[in-house]
Amino acid sequence: MTSGRDRLIEAATRLLTESPDREPSNRELCDAAGVAAPSLYHHFGTKEGLLDAVVDRAFGAYLKRKRGMLRTGDLVADFAAGWDLHIEFGVQNPVLYALMYGTRATSSAARTADDRLRKALHGLRDAGLLRIDVDTAAAMTTAMAVGCVTQLNRERRRADDPFATAMRSTLLETVTGLPASPSEPEFAARALVAHLEATSEGFTAPERALFQQWLRTIADTTRTVQDGQHQ
């Protein structure tokens, strides 16, 4: 049986998605969840606490997918793949994304995402691949990602729109000084691996494992061919 806490989070998510231009009232939230008002205060203290919990859950789903990304050992390529996953999540969850990077940008989940971004940037710096300081690179990455998602959602474009690809290339060239020309088959394979590891829908466990192995082979083969061409 679903708890009152979970019902409130699910109701808030649904109401925010249905009416993205306004926050639902306490009464609307409780009515939609089928709970009495004291339940909201008991679990979250205030409506603000409930909305923070909605953001935390959304960020949790995003971070779970990010942890499932196929790592290649190429720090720049992995950073670019992280950008692609971020943009895809923002386009697939426009209302929650607007909350996450808007009025709820100081939530614990937002801080966790920022910590992970800085960890990746520190890795680039330690490998001699970052040509600007970490603070500037973090601010630039977040600003460009939020701006990219906002524009894509405003114009109802897809996450793989050429505009998003151009933004990614501009960011990578700015923070690393390296030309950004990733292999689309390699990135597509990595994105599918991340998706499969984050969901169990559509495949049995053996089917999912086999499909993931095929995708990893595609990504590794593409990387090997590229490295041979650059030698």
Rank of each mutant, 00 (worst) to 15 (best):
S108E: 15
L192G: 00
H230A: 12
F59S: 07
A37M: 11
T2Q: 08
A191W: 09
G202H: 10
K47F: 00
V76G: 09
A110H: 09
Y41C: 06
A219E: 04
A37S: 08
A164Q: 03
G90I: 07
D21C: 00
T46V: 13
N93H: 15
T174I: 00
S3Q: 02
A113N: 14
M144V: 09
R157K: 09
A33E: 08
A81W: 15
A139L: 12
L196C: 03
G147I: 00
V76I: 14
D133F: 01
V95H: 08
V54E: 06
D84T: 03
L50V: 01
G90M: 07
T103Y: 08
T222Q: 14
V76H: 07
S181D: 14
A127Y: 05
T46F: 07
V35S: 09
R71D: 11
L196P: 00
R154S: 08
A191I: 12
F89M: 01
W83S: 00
R154H: 13
T103D: 10
D21I: 02
S39F: 01
K66N: 09
D6C: 02
T17L: 03
D84A: 06
S200K: 08
A139N: 12
L63R: 05
V225C: 02
R57L: 11
T165Y: 02
S169N: 12
H122L: 05
R168W: 02
D115I: 06
R156P: 00
A113L: 12
A194V: 09
A77Y: 09
D227N: 02
S200C: 04
V54H: 07
C30A: 13
T142W: 15
T222V: 12
R27E: 15
E18R: 14
A105K: 06
M100T: 15
Q231S: 05
A77N: 09
A33C: 04
A110Y: 11
D78K: 11
F203Y: 06
G45S: 05
H86G: 05
M144G: 02
G60W: 04
W83G: 03
F89Q: 04
G73Y: 01
L121K: 04
L210S: 11
I218Y: 01
L130H: 06
L15M: 14
P38W: 14
S169C: 06
G82W: 11
T199P: 07
R168V: 02
L129M: 15
A209T: 13
R208M: 00
L215A: 14
Q229D: 04
A138S: 15
S19Q: 13
K47I: 02
G45R: 07
L152F: 04
Q226V: 08
Q212V: 13
D6T: 11
A12M: 03
L121Q: 08
D21V: 02
D160C: 05
D84V: 08
A98R: 14
L50K: 02
E184Y: 11
A109L: 10
M140I: 06
L129T: 07
G228Y: 01
G34E: 06
D227T: 11
R118K: 08
L172Y: 02
D135Y: 01
A127W: 10
Q229P: 00
A109Y: 01
L99V: 09
V175W: 02
T72C: 10
D227G: 00
L63P: 00
E18T: 12
Y62P: 03
L70Y: 13
G45W: 05
E10I: 10
A80Q: 06
